[in-house]
Design a protein around this nucleic acid. Structure first.
Lengths: 238, 238
DNA sequence: TAGTGGTCTAGACCACTGA
DNA sequence: CAGTGGTCTAGACCACTAA
């Protein structure tokens, strides 16, 4: 593996890629330390990190802040047309979901949220911030913004569970029309901190704008996914 | 965390970001040379390039291989549920589309294509490779794979135009069901060369699997978009 | 041909993680 | 507390672009 042109970024990428694809490194397994790897490939840490960055961009490996580099687990299918919440979606694909609440409060609506939810200026909104895991790995940071008119007292409930189910059970509100906007971008500092990754890591930003059965705008989600955690699938009938 | 420390990656990012957002750099405009910028921010090229890389990940700037860094133009909406081909989609949004054919030929189907199109092993497929521009900027590299059974003689036509229209006009074939798979990843060397960007640049990979009005699998597209060129929008009725 | 981006070297210090 | 990743310095050479 060291014979062909080593010491260059592409050669290091190829070598690591082969090792990973042939399963020589366990899925979710940790790579050796950067200094070890740079020694192994007879190069500097800068060059080695350049190669790791390219593999990260491809989605083959990922890093946890100050903890090292790991082999990426398989992606989970995300199908916007199928009405399924996080726990159901992940569970159906044989993976283990988990949710933790970072914070939940009433606050003055940011201008962006006012526009999305068509609220008058200086409205209050309920913000719920959560982090979600698949098989223990942090993959999603979400900010939910709820129109407080429709959800009185919701901050008193257990928010680690599915909001979809909570809406239905406690408020008789069900999702109707939904709009998704998906953009590949980088994690902002807050999302990066929540997912414990380096700020600026590549991510998929998904904005969900939800209406209920009466076509009222009820809430929106700002989702930041690790870019290597999902595959978006859309099937168009006709 | 630490504010107003100059000479750091985040500080450089913030400074450049503000300049761009306040329109001090023209949209599509070229940034000063890396050496000039690193001098301006009193830092090294390595550090400066780290900052540029983060802005690139955010989609604020992009680079052309060996030509420099430019401010990203606005994203174009890509709506999988609306049956619209590239030229129509781009034109409707007030932008100027263009297409060039890189190559078109009959070849033995790669295994991946065999599986997608449900072809027997060792089948032949028609491959059409194209690059597409918006306002002159290369943003999309596509490989089309057509089941040759349904498109005899298609290599003789003008392939810079819409395949959708060609299918309808010459073969009476119209799209029926379509499946999209979208994955944030990096450009492979061939796509990078076609788009004249550095291999390993972030990209959005979209696989389209198309059926016709009789529900026959007729072709598939492997699309590689510059990650900052589009926003995917899906509206779910009901 | 001059200047540019692409790549690489050979170190260094700090903050944090995990034993 | 040792080792790790995150960050930064101060250069260098090459291939290519644009004038």
């Amino acid at each position: 593996m060291r014979d062909d042109a080593p010491r260059t970024v592409t050669a290091i990428c190829r070598a690591l890629q082969r090792q990973i694809e042939h399963g020589l490194l366990p899925l979710g397994g940790k790579l050796p330390a950067e200094r070890k790897l740079s020694e192994l490939f007879d190069t500097t840490r800068i060059t080695l990190r350049e190669a790791l960055g390219q593999l990260e961009a491809q989605g083959l490996i990922y890093r946890e802040e100050r903890r090292g580099w790991f082999v990426s687990p398989p992606r989970v299918d995300y199908n916007p047309l199928v009405r399924s919440h996080f726990h159901a979606m992940v569970g159906e694909q044989g993976r283990v979901p988990a949710t933790e609440v970072i914070g939940a409060r009433l606050l003055p609506a940011p201008v962006e949220i006012c526009e999305l939810l068509e609220l008058p200026a200086l409205s209050a909104v309920i913000q719920i911030r959560r982090a979600r895991r698949i098989d223990g790995r942090l993959v999603l940071y979400v900010e939910h913004y709820l129109n407080p008119l429709y959800f009185p007292g919701i901050l008193g409930f257990d928010l680690t569970r599915s909001l979809t189910e909570l809406y239905a059970r406690e408020y008789r509100i069900h999702y109707g029309r939904v709009r998704f906007d998906m953009v590949p971008t980088a994690l902002h500092p807050e999302a990066a901190a929540a997912l414990r990754v380096t700020p600026g890591s590549p991510a998929l930003r998904i904005v969900r704008l939800n209406r209920d059965q009466h076509d009222r705008l009820i809430d929106c989600d700002l989702e930041f996914w690790r870019h290597d955690a999902i595959q978006v699938r859309v099937e168009v009938p006709q």
